[in-house]
C-alpha cells in the first residue's frame, strides 16, 4: 500500500514527506511504547502511535521507519515535524483512535509481518 493510500484510508493530514507518497509500505506497528517498537519491529513498517514527543520521531529514525502516523487527532509540534523532514520521513495525523486507525489499515490490506515472532 502506498503512503498516499494510507493518508486517504485514515482521512489523514500529511504534515511532511510529500516525496514519500508513492513509497510502498507492507506492514504496520501500533505502539505507544518505544521500547516495544525497538524490541519487535524488524522490517520497514508504518508506525502508528499516540506518543507525541521527539522520542517517537527518533525511535522511528533509528529503526529505519519512514512513516509515522499520530492517532487520536494528535498533531506534532513544528520542531518535531522539522526533525522528521530532516530525517526524510513522512508524518501523518489522523483523527481516528489507535484501534480504528489500525482496523482501517488492516481492512485496506496492510498486514503484520514486519515484527519478530512473539512467543
Amino acid at each position: 500500500m502506498k503512503v498516499r493510500d494510507i493518508v486517504a484510508t485514515l482521512d489523514g493530514i500529511l504534515m511532511t514527506g510529500e516525496e514519500l507518497l508513492d513509497v510502498d509500505i507492507q506492514a504496520a506497528c501500533g505502539a505507544d511504547l518505544m521500547s516495544d517498537v525497538m524490541a519487535f519491529v524488524k522490517e520497514n513498517v508504518v508506525l502508528l502511535t499516540g506518543l507525541v514527543n521527539p522520542q517517537s520521531i527518533r525511535t522511528a529514525d533509528l529503526m529505519d521507519i519512514r512513516v509515522v502516523v499520530y492517532v487520536r487527532g494528535k498533531v506534532p509540534p513544528k520542531d518535531m515535524v522539522a526533525e522528521a523532514t530532516r530525517n526524510g520521513m513522512a508524518v501523518i495525523s489522523t483523527k481516528y483512535s489507535m484501534f480504528l486507525a489500525c482496523g482501517r489499515l488492516y481492512e485496506a490490506g496492510i498486514r503484520g509481518g514486519g515484527t519478530r515472532e512473539i512467543r
Binding site: 505507544d32 511504547l33 518505544m34 521500547s35 516495544d36 506518543l51 522520542q55 517517537s56
Partner: peptide, 11 residues
C-alpha cells in the same frame, strides 16, 4: 514518554 517498561537492558 514511551520508555520505562523494563525492555531496555533486554533489548
Amino acid at each position: 514518554m514511551g520508555f520505562g517498561a523494563g525492555m531496555g537492558l533486554p533489548n
